[in-house]
Amino acid sequence: MPEEFKAGCARPTGGPVGEAVAPEETKDNKKPKEVAKMIKVGRKAPDFSAPAYLNGKFVNIKLSEYLGKWVVLCFYPGDFTFV
């Protein structure tokens, strides 16, 4: 499932997949009001694609590839940060 990729000098990155929230245009060129989209239970998890280290390989992971399975997605402040 996850696709392996060759590691180069560039740091691999990923990001959200799908429709981006377009900034609202305003008449007077004021900054569009920031509408923070809150994550809600009972709603779809935003899809994303991200590089990962898995069993000795560098692979690309897409959340939507895991449809049909239970997924625990964990964020943490950083590698080597004790807790």
Binding site: I39, K40, V41, G42, R43, K44, A45, D47, L63, S64, Y66, L67, G68, K69, W70, V71, V72, L73, C74, F75
Partner: peptide, 11 residues
Amino acid sequence: GRFIIDPDGVI
């Protein structure tokens, strides 16, 4: 942050 996502992709 820890999210539990079901087989339909729902949080």
